[in-house]
Design a protein around this nucleic acid. Structure first.
Length: 894
RNA sequence: GGGGGGUUAGCUCAGUUGGGAGAGCGCCGCGUUCGCAACGCGGAGGUCGAGGGUUCGAAUCCCUUACCCUCCA
């Protein structure tokens, strides 16, 4: 027996070492963001990165592998988020240890290895281990897994081999594909950890019987009809949770009592000044924070940012839950970054990327804490006024609809609302809330149409399986090729012939056309036959690796399947695109040099006329930063650095420092594009041979795309020249208009604005004086209508604002009366009517305005004391004014 | 993918039947003070996210769109 329990780190190494010694390739953990699998939110098991290997779609140069895989389980089908912290075993982030056989060894070796490792290397007492096997399933047409039972009997007594149902012990990847029975190794932690019920046994959901390791025996292929046929070369997929192993070996009651978690909890203890375990509630909060901080650190490191949809939303929920528990511990100031920092320190040996991304993670954490703080602040205000209103209405219950609105629209945490309302003696209508919630869920489900994956039509799938296209785009622009297939019509059905004027898609056996990929747009060009037929290539794409589709329009003649054609790429477009693509790599490297290593590509467009680059970065770029980036890129162009490409193994490429991007799918062999001494990136695109060809690089714009993502657009070569030229012209023209030299432009504009402002003021003064005169005139011309003073006048020199000011002054001077102003401006009529308050109820300004405007061919209205109206016929203004006394009089006498 | 809410001065935000674009803080100037803070007076600063429509008239109503917040999937 070892004197000291193994640490989590030691268990991980022991596992990898053990299987490496047994002929397994140690494969690095894949990103938490699954590559090329839109159906999966996060990597949630060790086998995810080997999916295509199991189905045979992908080949690897090894047939046995071992991994320690980072996993996240949150959101999606099994949503355990609410359980984390309350139980001993639930986590959002955990590490899965797994060994894999791809058609190599099967059940016997898998069982031997698992047993030997647990009892031998880890020293777990054999008498505490139980195993489960699949009991068989008539519906599936599968009998009990007697083979596994026989093999287990070599190590365990029959009493400790428990048959289990399909629900627990039969694994399948999806509705179709590889599947098979599983066998689990269970550890008996003893009665002190159990529920004490007489029925307690393996499978009980208490903590006594702990599932340590799941062995999946992939031995069948499931067809669409649900029929299982044996696989010729069955495979093995296993998974053991590192946290559980550590808990068992270190003798703790929970996964949180291991060295994987205690140091993280320690940081939380320091932050809030309370001891872990002092109170049950506080302990839950500390566990939640520790767990969620791990998930946050790993997810952000793998390129996920908190947002309001998809993966980012799950991350945000995890982070906010941690923050909420922080507040429950009395932590009001940002604390999460300190905790994620500790996670990075603790795990850096196994996951060096954590340390590299540490500052980035801290910034993201801090940003989210600020945003959450804001959400709470706004929410608290709303809660206050809501409770106030309820009190006013004499109610002591908060309606479900209001709770829902707070939660749904403003993101206010329900439990916090419960606390606040409770303190003030309010009850919550939680049933009403649940109902509203259920309605929203139902609505969302209804509209759900499936994941964003584009379905490939069956006809294309069949074609792809049959064909293997030869890609020539990296070494030539013109190729002799044969038309392997033609697709035409709405359903993209195979066709024999494509006639003049028709559009369709061509499959060639070899092609020089670059298909749209990695942000680079596809080539254009033409396809011709010897007998003079000609088609224009409009777009090229590649739905599967074996299938390149050329979208064409036939200009002349017709194209026939099996015909021999000449495929010719438009060289100018290709060249311009290549300049922009290489420039994109230079820009990416320059951004990282100037802004820091947290800059990661988040999206990219490479077109012939421009390039667009999205990347993770927190603040807008300062003008000086843009200058430095632009200059750095241009310096590389002036240096005329060589651009080389090279094929190598993915591992070697990454070790050599090449930039690999998340969200991209890479095979075992990758293409590395190197700009000597400056940049190295995995890339399939087309590039220039030396940076000098780019000519000139100019950033055209920069802006934000989403929180934490910035976008830069730039042009190169002739495009950049044109851009600069245009700016020069605009400048020259502007300068010419104000008779200045371009260099003096700023100064001269400054002087002009100043003088224009002076003139403006002078104008105001004159207008005011003029209005004074007009005012006197207006008052002098006022007349009595049935005991009411009516002042009316035409003021064409004033605009609407001036009229209102004049009207106000006239009304004040009048004390009691009616003011009517009318002006003609740009062929239209503008009316303003005002009535002093003492006449309210006698004369209505709105009605008066409407009636006056009607005469001049318009309409209008307003408040009883002030109204505006318009019209279209200025020639009738005098007529309208003449009718004014009559109109006023009619209102007075009605 | 589907809901809810938002976008108004440098910042935080008001702005109800559609009819004067505002407050607080900040900034500049003047006053008060030995000086500072505070205070008083004055001032600069607004494509009311963008585009279309309805109307005599739109920050306000309708449609489209961008972005942000938020919930659900």
């Amino acid at each position: 027996m070892p004197m000291r329990a193994m640490t989590g780190s030691e268990i991980r190494s022991a596992f990898l070492d053990y299987f490496q010694a047994e002929g397994h390739r140690v494969v690095a953990s894949s990103s938490l963001v699954p590559t090329a699998d839109p159906s999966l939110l996060f990597t949630n098991a060790g086998m995810v990165q080997f999916k295509d290997v199991f189905t045979g779609k992908e080949q690897r140069p090894y047939s046995r592998a071992v991994t320690a895989q980072k996993c996240v389980r949150a959101g999606g089908k099994h949503n355990d988020l609410e359980n984390v912290g309350r139980t001993a075993r639930h986590h959002t982030f955990f590490e899965m240890l797994g060994n894999f056989s791809f058609g190599d060894y099967f059940k016997e070796r898998a069982i031997d290895h698992a047993w030997t490792f647990l009892t031998g290397r880890l020293g777990l007492p054999a008498e505490r281990l139980w195993v489960t096997i699949h009991e068989g399933d008539a519906a599936l047409g599968v009998g009990p897994d007697e083979e596994a039972e026989r093999l287990w009997l070599r190590y365990v007594q029959k009493e400790r081999i428990v048959p289990c149902s399909t629900k627990d012990n039969f694994w399948q990847m999806g509705d179709t594909g590889p599947c098979g029975p599983c066998s689990e190794i269970v550890y008996d932690q003893g009665p002190r950890m159990g529920c004490g019920r007489p029925t307690c046994a393996v499978g009980c959901d208490c903590d006594r019987y702990l599932e340590l390791w799941n062995l999946v025996f992939m031995q069948f292929e499931r067809s669409l009809e649900g029929v299982l046929t044996p696989l010729p070369k069955p495979s093995i997929d296993t998974g053991a949770g590192l946290e559980r192993l550590a808990a068992v070996l270190q003798g703790g009651r929970s996964n949180f009592d291991t060295d994987l978690f205690r140091p993280i909890i320690g940081v939380v203890e320091e932050q809030c000044g309370a001891r872990y375990g002092a109170s049950v509630q506080a302990a839950v909060s500390m566990r939640v924070i520790a767990d969620h901080a791990r998930a946050t650190a790993f997810l952000v490191t793998d390129g996920v940012l908190p947002s309001n949809e998809g993966r980012g939303y799950v991350l945000r929920r995890i982070m906010r839950r941690a923050l909420r528990h922080g507040r429950m511990l009395g932590l009001e100031e940002p604390f999460l970054a300190a905790v994620t920092g500790r996670v990075a320190e603790l795990m850096q040996e196994a996951y060096p990327e954590l340390q590299e991304a540490r500052d980035h993670v801290a910034r993201v954490a801090q940003g989210e804490e600020e945003r959450f703080g804001h959400t709470l602040k706004v929410g608290l205000r709303l809660v206050d006024s809501l409770l106030e209103a309820q009190k006013g209405a004499g109610s002591r219950t908060v309606p479900g609809a209001e709770i829902f609105k707070l939660y749904d629209t403003y993101g206010f945490p329900l439990d916090l609302l419960r606390d606040i309302a409770g303190d003030q003696g309010f009850a919550l209508d939680e049933a009403g809330f649940e109902q509203a919630m259920e309605e929203q869920r139902a609505k969302a489900r209804e509209s759900w149409v499936g994941s964003g994956e584009v379905e490939i039509p069956a006809s294309l799938k069949a074609l792809a399986d049959r064909l293997r296209v030869e890609a020539c785009w990296h070494h030539s622009l013109t190729e002799e090729a044969k038309i392997a297939a033609i697709l035409a019509g709405e359903g993209r059905q195979p066709a024999e012939l494509l006639r003049q004027g028709e559009t369709g898609e061509l499959v060639l056996d070899r092609t020089p056309f670059y298909p749209e990929a990695g942000g680079q747009v596809s080539d254009g060009g033409r396809i011709t036959t010897r007998d003079g037929a000609q088609a224009e290539v409009m777009a090229v794409h590649r739905p599967t690796p074996n299938l390149v589709l050329h979208r064409v329009r036939v200009k002349r003649g017709s194209l026939r399947a099996d015909a021999t054609v000449t495929a010719e790429v438009e060289a100018g477009r290709r060249k311009a695109t290549a300049k922009n693509h290489t420039a994109t790599h230079l820009l990416h490297a320059a951004l990282r040099q100037v802004l820091g290593d947290h800059v990661k590509q988040a999206g990219s467009l490479v077109a012939p006329d421009r390039l667009r680059f999205d990347f993770s970065h927190w603040s807008p770029l300062a003008p000086q930063e843009i200058d430095r980036i632009e200059r750095l890129v241009n310096e590389q162009i002036w240096e005329n650095r060589r651009v080389g490409t090279e094929e190598k193994a993915l591992d070697d490429a990454v070790k050599g420092g090449a930039m690999a991007l998340f969200g991209e799918k890479y095979g075992e062999r990758v293409r590395v594009v190197t700009v000597d001494g400056f940049s190295q990136e995995l890339c399939e695109g087309t590039h220039v041979q030396a940076t000098g060809e780019i000519g000139l690089f100019k950033i055209v714009s920069q802006g934000g795309v989403a929180a934490g993502v910035r976008r830069v657009e730039a042009v190169t070569g002739p495009g950049a020249y044109l851009y600069v030229k245009q700016e020069e012209q605009v400048l020259a023209e502007a300068a010419a208009r104000i008779k200045a030299r371009p260099l003096e432009l700023a100064e001269k504009v400054e002087r002009l604005t100043e003088s224009s402002r002076d003139l403006e003021r002078e104008n105001q003064r004159l207008k005011a004086r003029l209005a004074g005169g007009v005012l006197e005139e207006l008052l002098a011309g006022s007349r009595d209508v049935n005991g009411v003073r009516v002042a009316a006048g035409r003021v064409d020199s004033l605009d609407a604002k001036g009229m209102r000011e004049l009207g106000d002054r006239a009304r004040a001077r009048l004390g009691s009366g009616v003011v009517v102003l009318v002006a003609q401006a740009e062929g239209r009529v503008l009316w303003l009517t005002m009535v002093t308050t003492d006449l309210a109820g006698k004369v209505h300004a709105g009605r008066l305005a409407r009636e006056l405007a009607a005469v001049t061919g318009g309409g209008g209205g307003g408040r009883p004391d002030m109204a505006e109206a318009g019209g279209k016929d200025p020639s009738r203004i005098p007529e309208a004014l003449e009718r004014l006394p009559e109109l006023v009089n009619r209102q007075l006498s009605s």
